[in-house]
Simulated scan of single mutants.
Amino acid sequence: MPQSVRGVVAHKKGEPVSVETIIVPDPGPGEAVVQVQACGVCHTDLHYREGGINDEFPFLLGHEAAGIVEAVGEGVTDVAPGDFVILNWRAVDGTCRACRRGEPWYCFSTHNAAQKMTLESGQELSPALGIGAFVEKTLVHAGQCTKVDPAVKPEVAGLLGCGVMAGIGAAINTGGVGRGDSIAVIGCGGVGDAAIAGARLAGASTIIAIDMDDRKLEWAKGFGATHTINARERDVVEAVQELTDGNGANVVVDAVGRPETFKQAFYARDLAGTVVLVGVPTPDMTVDLPLIDVFGRGGSTKSSWYGDCLPSRDFPMLVDLHLQGRLPLEKFVSETIALDGVEAAFEKMHKGEVLRSVVLF
Rank of each mutant, 00 (worst) to 15 (best):
V76N: 13
V354S: 15
V358W: 03
M212G: 12
R101D: 09
V69K: 04
T228L: 06
I172G: 08
L310S: 14
G178F: 05
A344S: 10
R232S: 03
D26V: 13
P104R: 03
G325Y: 09
L271T: 03
H47D: 15
G296F: 00
L217H: 15
A204K: 01
A98I: 10
V85R: 07
G273N: 02
S18D: 14
V164D: 10
S182W: 12
I292H: 01
F223H: 03
E218I: 14
C145P: 13
N54S: 15
K153L: 11
P25N: 02
I337G: 10
A80D: 13
N88Y: 05
T226Y: 02
G224A: 02
A202L: 04
T336G: 06
A194D: 11
G299K: 00
G279N: 05
V92A: 07
V342D: 12
S18Q: 11
S304I: 03
G7Q: 10
D83H: 05
T138D: 07
L87D: 13
V252I: 10
V92F: 09
N230M: 03
D83K: 03
V294Y: 00
L271Y: 01
I229D: 01
R258M: 12
A114Q: 09
T77M: 15
V359I: 08
H227S: 04
G246N: 09
D254T: 08
D254Y: 05
G273V: 01
G130K: 11
I172S: 02
R6I: 09
G28M: 04
T226E: 08
E347H: 08
D235W: 00
G190C: 07
D254C: 08
A32E: 09
G248C: 10
V148T: 11
D284Q: 07
V34T: 04
Y267F: 03
L129V: 13
K147V: 12
V253M: 15
L243G: 01
G203N: 06
E56P: 03
S121N: 06
H11I: 13
E120L: 07
F262K: 03
E50V: 09
N112M: 07
A231K: 01
T44R: 05
D83A: 10
P328A: 07
A10D: 11
L323T: 13
P2G: 12
R313C: 06
L243S: 00
D93S: 12
T261F: 02
A268I: 00
G248I: 09
I196V: 02
